[in-house]
Write a protein that binds this DNA or RNA. Structure first.
Lengths: 166, 166
DNA sequence: TGCTACGTTCAAAACTAATTGAACGTAATG
DNA sequence: CATTACGTTCAATTAGTTTTGAACGTAGCA
């Protein structure tokens, strides 16, 4: 493969590495995906450790992660005991899964907190206790948060949907 | 302030801390915002260091960041030399600014790379060199990436817009 | 069956990011 | 003017995360 092409590929690999790192997913994930995405032939773990100069352990873990997100697909090459991988190009799906995986849980946590707060505040009202100013203040703030959460939720869902629609 | 209310507030502070941390913005940002958001009175740096048990340096830097994102507003209390802060509740704007600030630069880097690639590939074509299979392959992959980038860009822009429309 | 070539795991090491706090500049106060 | 009470900065430290690589289990092969 010619020199110019190689260095372009190299830039993609570096950029992808920085990108995934900045998203908190680790440098090697991006590097591996870019390397395979720009490789015509399926790549083995061994290829990855050699070409990217990373350890077998790193390669193994990153590849598994990428496979779970649907970014890589495993292919068998007959007569070869190694696992080989090729890259998917359905970026929408990949990013959807990755984001759900990475942010999803946090969302649920804050959702739970908002529900709990609402329950607590409502119960207090039902008990007919005179609402003091502290409670009224918190109540107002929680309501504003919930309202935002609902709007953001809707926006998120529709964006995800659009992403999946090719 | 009563006990139940305090512990609810505390949960919000912790959750917000974890949330901002998981987004790569640091724990204290979320903690400070939540603390002030759920405080009726404007809070000083000093209040923050005491209530959240963080250093003055941390508080100062985080507050400045939050102010830049429009999440906090500085208020003056006459006869007091301290700076006091109150929380904004325009979450859409806040998140917009924060995301632009945090992801923006990364996007530019990869955009630049895509433009460069395109230029390189087009120039090669113009020179009439016979496109070998390696080039054709890379060309195809770059085109797919660009197409995705464009769709994602549009989606991003429209989402940001909707968020701002209250 | 023993041997080999693989993928996986996980404790330790290397690296990176967040936090602290002492030193500093500044502006208000008396 | 000197003093004090603040906010800011940044080098050093601490905490957290990623990466490594040796040890291990397993499946295919002879």
């Amino acid at each position: 493969m010619n020199q110019e092409l190689q260095s372009l590929r190299q830039r993609f690999i570096e950029t992808a590495g920085h990108f995934t790192q900045s998203l908190g997913a680790g440098r090697v994930l991006g590097q591996i995906f870019a390397h395979i995405y720009f490789s015509r032939d399926p790549q083995s773990l061994d290829d990855l450790t050699r070409k990217l100069e990373i350890s077998k352990g790193s390669a193994s873990m990153a590849v598994r992660q990428l496979e779970q997100w649907g970014a890589l697909r495993r292919v068998w090459i007959k007569g070869d005991r190694k696992d080989y991988y090729v890259a998917t190009d359905e970026f929408g799906r990949i990013i959807r899964k990755a984001l759900l995986d990475m942010i999803g849980r946090k969302m649920e946590t804050s959702d739970g907190l908002l529900e709990d707060s609402q329950a607590l505040l409502q119960e207090r009202m039902r008990n007919g206790k005179k609402a003091d100013e502290d409670w009224a203040f918190i109540d107002d703030r929680v309501k504003k948060l919930q309202s935002f959460r609902d709007r953001a939720q809707g926006l998120w869902d529709s964006s995800i949907l659009k992403m999946l629609l090719k």
